[in-house]
Write a protein that binds this DNA or RNA. Structure first.
Lengths: 209, 209
DNA sequence: CCCTATTTCACCCAAAGAGGGGATTGCGGA
DNA sequence: TCCGCAATCCCCTCTTTGGGTGAAATAGGG
């Protein structure tokens, strides 16, 4: 059975050429095409597509909301972003919204076919530069040690980030309560924060450590 | 110029067949092959490979440490994991260590060639099931609302997680200090934590919200 | 219409944390 | 050798938080 595809793309010419392209391959069936995703949830529920190709920059309702809506309404539908945007902010917003793939518009048509097959088979097609960014987001190589924490301070911070209290940290490191406080004060200064909560938030959201 | 490749793989037969395979393509040059990565950093510094293929399960020193060593010694060298392991723990440990790709051993040889070219070109080759896991790690689809937080509690928690103090939260939500404290108490109960720091740690590490 | 959950606010108390001092030891570099 | 720094510890003060208790208004479901 052909793969049922729905396209959300506001550029009429591009959308039409995508439809034309996909129709040229009878493994695919275009079940719908839209220039905005206000009704994305309803559309997904009614047409039950296997795959959605989703642009980001569209009038009225952007593609990031579109992904959220569709994944909420039909979690089993694979949503592949198809966009010109390469910035981290939009990329990770889409991934957090549940996107199953992320292709740049410069993707050659042949690769587009592969990508659809790949996402159907349980994969996650991404343009190479996107995949690189995604992997890089895991390694805190960025500026992890720009804060110049000493070895002991790093240990203390690691325990703090687990939610432990000063007293518990002292016990775990076999040092005095006051010593831990002393380290914490230095850590706060180095991280430019004013309290433990800010430190935890900063470490975990910036993936320091 | 040929792509310089070093292989770390403890299974002699597999390693030899990889070498044979790569040598069959004169776009590639095998600059070294090892059955453990104790000396990975030194090897990387001396042979300056473009790409390293790295197994995980090896005697003496595992591949995860190997990646760390190599990325520290030669950050510009691309390290691609080549393993049978699909579990999240090893996968994300490798990514955090700085791996630039992650291929399962069931990868067909042709795809292996592509993957090496891809990583050289700045991509991040991953087996489809791996790519899927990586993307899924971004969406908190698990059971975000298992904690049954009310709308207001969610708002308060979001601000808490940013590191804001009770007073600041009260100002931002235009409610009284005591009301925020009241919400926080309920939140702690629902999250089964005893203080704000634990709540922040739990939310950010389990990707609740 | 009653019951429940949500949201709002208040007060009390004890514990924890933040910010400011100052002090000692030991180690490695200039 | 002397200086600096990391690591250790202590004291004091003031603010913030956690935990308990209670209560009013509001909205929604049975």
């Amino acid at each position: 059975m052909a793969v049922r595809i729905i396209i959300f793309e506001d550029n009429d010419r591009l959308r039409e050429s995508l439809v034309y392209l996909l129709k040229s391959n009878n493994a695919f069936e275009v079940a719908g095409e839209y220039n905005n995703c206000r009704e994305a949830a309803t559309i997904a529920r009614v047409y039950k597509p296997d795959v959605v190709l989703m642009d980001i920059d569209m009038p009225l309702s952007n593609g990031i909301d579109g992904v959220k809506q569709i994944k909420e309404a039909m979690p089993q539908t694979a949503v592949v972003m198809y966009t010109v945007f390469e910035d981290d902010e939009k990329l990770f917003a889409c991934l957090c919204a549940g996107a199953n793939g992320y292709l740049l518009k410069k993707t050659p048509p042949a690769r587009l076919f592969d990508a659809i097959e790949e996402v159907i088979a349980g994969g996650a097609p991404m343009s190479p530069s996107i995949a690189r960014r995604v992997l890089e987001s895991f390694s805190p190589k960025k500026q992890a040690r720009q804060y110049d924490l000493s070895a002991r301070e790093t240990e203390v911070l690691q325990l703090l980030v687990k939610g432990h209290s000063t007293k518990i940290i002292a016990d775990k490191l076999f040092i005095s309560f006051e010593t831990v406080r002393s380290h914490l004060k230095n850590i706060y200064t180095k991280l430019h924060v004013n309290c433990g909560k800010e430190a935890i938030a900063k470490v975990l959201s910036e993936r320091i450590l």
